[in-house]
Design a protein around this nucleic acid. Structure first.
Lengths: 219, 219
DNA sequence: CCTACCGATCGGTAGG
DNA sequence: CCTACCGATCGGTAGG
């Protein structure tokens, strides 16, 4: 969102001069870049990585989207790979936080908790500006093994939250497939919605969550 | 499969000479390259596109995997993109054929037909040498719009086969979610298995299909 | 299908 | 964070 604001600001500059002003528009002196540019870079990278893929996105694309010169991203990030990793980690961090909030708000009923998990997951995937997790899901193989291991713990934490809920549903006979395979298949069904869900038309995230719960749970 | 045989043949050449022989091993004169090299290129491309992604795979990688020099793939394919498109089309063609066979063998019972569709889909995703469809699923965005449209018809045909089966199950009360959303979620759950299913360890494709049917259908 | 090659692009850096 | 730049790589081609 920050990034799109700044992009809009750049586009709004009247093109009266022959040479367009380089870099982003000047800000007032007391509006220092205390890490804001870093966030804008991250957001721009996430959006581009999602749309074009990691390898097909150039650091120049990212720089331009953030209103910088081509070499400038490397002032904030050691490498293109570090940018990818930061996007993924940021994504997992906020996904975990969103999931925890959802569970905290839900009651004790297993089906209700299940719906909360599903709904929170759809928010993570399709909420406005939430490009981070889709990037993580689809650019997993672009990560060096080292960093992949480092993310695995966060992912395990995220998935672990589903297990007790699924176990309870299994015990109640509302989920018949084995718990572990169920979790993999269910998360897959949700994750895949990144490929076809379009916020602008058709169903809402609520409709989606309803359908998913209806599909997976008995009774 | 052809390609893996030839890869094995290449690997079996004794390494007695200092310089390895370039290209693939000579064949008898009457075994002309009537399109075989093309198939080997396709298989090599599919495997590499799947493992590393389209943009991260170089045409040199593909040439080397097929035992050719760096410029030679362009004798068989106009461009790297044409190679990608050929992989996807080939994948859809054989997926549709496999699906039709499975339905032809199944009886009239909707649940039985459902299981056949699921099983055939897992074969398409995880059968030995079946890298084509995973590439299609994960490199969709790497295709120019023109070619994407061209593939859309094949994909529509493939998905259309699910609809009557799901409708019958819905009418019987064995599927509660709306048919269209069900199809999207179910295919997503299956497709996602590309990310975690490992043929070498754990569950078989039969186990997987059982779990999926158990998860989606009531009673 | 190979040889030899080109033009363009890309990630990254030094120095300010 | 910009300027100016480098070395490497890449898709693709001409000519055989």
């Amino acid at each position: 969102m920050k990034a799109s604001e700044s992009a809009a600001a750049v586009a709004a500059i009247p093109d009266t001069v022959t040479k367009r002003p380089r870099g982003r528009p000047r800000k007032t002196v007391d509006e220092r870049d205390d890490g804001n540019r870093r966030k804008e870079l991250l957001q721009a990278a996430a959006r581009l990585f999602r749309r074009k893929g990691f390898a097909a996105t150039t650091t120049r694309d990212i720089a331009a989207a953030a209103g910088m010169q081509s070499g400038s991203p490397f002032y904030h990030f050691k490498s293109k790979n570090a940018l990818l990793y930061a996007v993924m980690e940021e994504g997992m961090q906020s996904a975990i936080a969103r999931q925890a909030d959802a569970l905290a708000m839900a009651g004790a009923d297993a089906a209700e908790r299940m719906r909360s998990l599903v709904r929170a997951h759809f928010d993570t995937l399709h909420g406005p500006g939430n490009d981070f997790i889709p990037v993580m899901l689809y650019e997993h193989r672009s990560l060096p093994a080292r960093q992949r291991t480092s993310l695995a713990q966060l992912q395990a934490d995220y998935e672990a939250a589903w297990t007790p809920v699924l176990q309870a549903l299994h015990a109640d006979g509302r989920l018949r497939a084995p718990v572990k395979l169920s979790r993999l298949l269910i998360l897959g069904a949700l994750n895949w919605s990144v490929q076809w869900f379009d916020r602008k038309k058709g169903a809402s995230l609520e409709d989606l969550a309803d359908a998913a719960v209806l599909l997976f749970l008995k009774e």
